[in-house]
Design a protein around this nucleic acid. Structure first.
Length: 441
RNA sequence: GGAGGGAUGGCAGAGCGGCCGAAUGCGAGGCUCUUGAAAAGCCUUGGGGUGCAAGCCCCCGUGGGUUCAAAUCCCACUCCCUCCGCCA
């Protein structure tokens, strides 16, 4: 949620900033009007209440003094005021409801450093990291030998480590089944990443089903309801990312500044309905409804935020480097930012078989947008009062696309897949993934 | 799923319908004393809205109701604890 006080004090500035990401500025006029109305009504209600309270005191006093007539008179006057208060309160409720609904739908104000642009086409590639020994082809994409130009769905089927047909049988398309070393690879990646972050980040294992309020806190509801799986009977939502439970871990709490930044990491399943993306990226693991991901997340002060953002990004990058995967860092333009984000860097790994750059991580700074929704605050050292923390998070990493990139990038001429050196300890020392002898199609 | 108990400030814990945003203790911060520390004494110490400010208003799990007046009475819900049942 954006700060209503900022709308009040700098309406034009907020409009200008949000127009960069395609928000209709008249929506902000509406917010400003509702806010004005809300404050006027509240003032009136408070005045009435103050009068009622003082009249109630009079009743008590008069009664103690034995003056029943005066007591009754005050009570009568107060009763009339009560009627009026009820009417005003009803107006306040409806205005407050409209205001909140409108405010919840307004995205975060983009950071001034986020590049201009309306869509993904205008995102800026900040830098590219190339796996050791890899050359660049004349077409501007990394040059891979032909044996690495096989899409992962073919590699997976050939080796018997990915079974999309059975997944479709069980749950429908976009629900993959990993087999043998394919399944072990996911598990290895998860352990590898958790160990990597473990020295600085507390490992958390949160629930993957959460309440409505928890989804609202991160901005996933109410606007993106269609993208989430909902268990109606129990009114619980399947988390689309660990960001959801981790952000709410501190909900309605006041942290001590000395404890910041609070850093957490979690491996969880993630569930996404992918409504509206039907027919796009449907092949293989490019887009799936359920997947595993390791997330890193932090609460910090506004001053710490830029440093933490850089750290999260560096961590996600380090994993890709250790996995010997070519990737690029993309600075999302204002128009392509997620609703809650002020600044986001995406990491895209190059998958030579599918021939595309795949988004495997998104590292975002949410300023106080989520903290305001979730009411996560801290007490500044030496200062007075409380302030909202800043929240940041990043995937490190989302496994299906990394899995795809690995089996394409590290495919050897004989068809097996080389295991990156750093990952071998997590796969029982295995140096390659060969045909799955326990499963052949 | 069944039965019972509970929800008050950082914690513990009081609170006849009006004098309660709330006793008391602990904790925390400041000051005095002290070479320093401890002890002792004094003071301070929840969150939020609005307003230039003084102030006014809201919050005793949540939502409703009764009343001139609700932490206190009534109703519903949520959560927590204990026991029973079922169960990975």
């Amino acid at each position: 949620m954006i700060d209503i006080r900022r709308v009040r004090s700098d309406l034009d500035g907020v409009k200008a900033a949000l127009t960069r990401r395609g928000v209709d500025p008249t929506e902000l006029d509406r917010v400003a009007q509702l806010d004005e109305r809300h404050r006027q009504l509240s003032q009136r209600r408070d005045d009435i209440r103050a009068r009622v309270k003082s009249l109630s005191q009079s009743v008590a006093q008069a009664r103690r003094a034995g003056d029943q007539g005066a007591a009754d008179a005050a009570a009568t006057e107060s009763r009339a005021l009560g009627e009026e208060e009820r009417a005003v309160a009803a107006d306040i409720d409806s205005v407050a409801g409209e205001l909140r609904a409108s405010l919840l739908g307004i995205p975060n104000i983009p950071d001034g450093d986020a590049p201009d642009g309306d869509s993904a086409e205008e995102n800026v590639v900040v830098r590219t990291w190339t796996a050791p020994g890899l050359e660049w082809g004349p077409d501007g994409s990394p040059a891979h030998p032909d044996h690495q130009r096989i899409p992962h769905w073919d590699v997976g089927a050939e080796l018997g480590i990915l079974d999309l047909e059975r997944g479709a049988k069980l749950s429908g398309t976009m629900f993959p089944v990993y087999r043998g070393m394919g399944a072990a690879l996911i598990r290895a990646l998860t352990n590898f990443a958790l160990d990597h972050h473990g020295e600085a980040f507390e490992e958390i294992r949160p629930p993957s089903l959460v309440r409505t309020e928890t989804m609202v806190s991160t901005g996933h509801l109410p606007k993106f309801e269609d993208d989430a799986y909902h268990l109606e009977r129990d009114d619980l939502w399947a988390i689309p990312t660990a960001e959801v439970p981790l952000t709410s871990l501190g909900r309605d709490e006041i942290l001590v500044e000395a404890d910041l930044p609070v850093r957490m990491t979690a491996a969880t399943p993630c569930y996404r309905r992918e409504a509206g993306s039907a027919g796009r990226d449907t092949r293989g693991l490019l887009r799936v409804h359920e997947f595993d991901k390791v997330e890193i997340l932090a609460y910090c002060t506004p001053d710490q935020a830029p440093g933490v953002h850089a750290d999260l990004l560096a961590r996600a990058e380090a994993l890709l480097q250790e996995l010997e995967l070519t990737y690029r860092v993309v600075d999302l333009c204002a128009g392509d930012l997620g609703q809650s984000s002020a600044r986001t860097f995406d990491l895209e790994a190059y998958a030579p078989g599918s021939g595309q750059w795949l988004e495997v991580s998104s590292v975002s700074w949410f300023s106080d947008y989520q903290a305001r929704r979730a009411n996560v605050r801290y007490r500044p050292t030496g200062g007075s009062g409380t302030a909202f923390v800043h929240t940041l998070n990043g995937s490190a990493l989302a496994w299906p696309r990394v899995w795809a990139t690995i089996v394409e990038t590290h495919r050897k001429p004989d068809g097996s897949v080389a295991v990156p050196v750093r990952l071998r300890p997590y796969l029982g020392g295995a140096e390659e993934i060969g045909p799955n002898k326990q499963y052949r199609r």
